[in-house]
């Protein structure tokens, strides 16, 4: 598989002088075409910052980020992003939200009439893929959190991005909805074949979805360990209970705890573990 995203010795510094914070230091990672990579790590490890740099929403202060061997210059339609919340346009109905990119000059360039018809068909297809057909004419604030995120995903997919960046997209959803969304996003990944970079704080989610889990550590933000997920490509919910899944989950959780650098947290957890042992 060819490399889609190449992150080379990337560094990121926020602020100046005494407010200087090194959010990322010497981060290097190649993400293959159509790969599904998830990022986990203790808070402050820079996983969201790294995702936003790939999306062109932040600039890196050192190193290079290449997409198809070209350095990225700001945000672009080839790298669509799905946020945790508040990204839908409340003044547009669901269908209009999904078709938003059609209002942009970028989306109207070099279009044939067949493209226009195709786009309408695509919006309909995405709507039914996401199970939103009945909600096409609803306002976003009439929908549940899970449905709103499905609209956001459909809207991001509308422009056929080669890369889909997801920043804790299911972080605000309840556990049952989240499981449904996991299988949905895996289905989307198989169907649309985007390269997928996905930030989460839920380790189970990170393993279940990914080909590789990238564990990052804070102060300064860096890549600590990269785990290959030893599961078949076709995921099923039952796999979450297999020994290899549980072993990996335990290993990653332990490593996050070790790298978090929070002495008080560690002390508290040790205390809890001792109580459990008793």
């Amino acid at each position: 598989m060819s490399t889609k995203i190449s992150i080379q010795h990337v560094g990121k510094v926020f602020g100046e002088g005494s407010h200087r914070v090194e959010a990322l230091k010497d981060v290097s990672l190649d993400i293959a075409d159509n790969e599904f990579v998830t990022f986990v790590g203790a808070s402050g490890c820079g996983k969201s910052t790294l995702l936003r740099i790939i999306g062109g929403l932040e600039y890196h202060t050192a190193g290079d980020v290449l997409v198809d061997d070209q350095p990225i210059m700001g945000p672009g339609a080839d790298r669509a992003m799905v946020f945790q919340h508040y990204s839908l346009y409340p003044w547009l109905k669901v269908m209009e939200n999904i078709k938003f990119s059609r209002r942009l000059k970028h989306g109207r360039e070099n279009l044939t009439s067949a493209d226009v018809e195709g786009a309408s068909g695509r919006a309909d297809a995405l709507l039914s893929l996401m199970g939103l057909t009945a909600a096409a004419n609803a306002w976003p604030n009439q929908l549940s959190g899970g449905m709103q995120q499905r609209v956001a995903i459909a809207r991001a997919l509308m422009g056929r991005p080669q890369i889909l960046l997801m920043d804790e997209p299911f972080g605000a959803l309840d556990a049952q909805t989240r499981e449904v969304m996991h299988d949905l996003i895996l289905h989307v990944h198989r169907l649309e074949k985007p390269t997928l970079a996905f930030v989460t704080h839920d380790v189970e989610e990170a393993i279940y979805l990914a080909d590789r889990v990238v564990l990052m550590a804070p102060r300064p933000g860096r890549i600590d360990t990269i785990y290959e997920v030893p599961l078949p490509a076709e995921r099923e919910q039952d796999m979450k209970h297999t020994p290899e899944f549980l072993r990996l989950k335990k290993e990653i959780l332990a490593r996050i705890r070790e790298t978090s650098g929070m002495k008080t947290d560690q002390g508290m957890l040790d205390q809890l573990n001792m109580q459990e042992a008793v």
Binding site: P75, A77, W91, L104, K105, A156, M158, L165
Partner: peptide, 28 residues
């Protein structure tokens, strides 16, 4: 909300489009 602005940018919106199609609409 910044997410509304950034979502438009990652869908390919130019500066003027972001102001007229997102920021102004959202603030109305």
């Amino acid at each position: 909300p910044l997410a509304q602005i950034e979502a438009a940018q990652t869908m390919g919106a130019q500066k003027g489009e972001t102001i007229s199609l997102v920021i102004f609409q959202a603030a109305k």
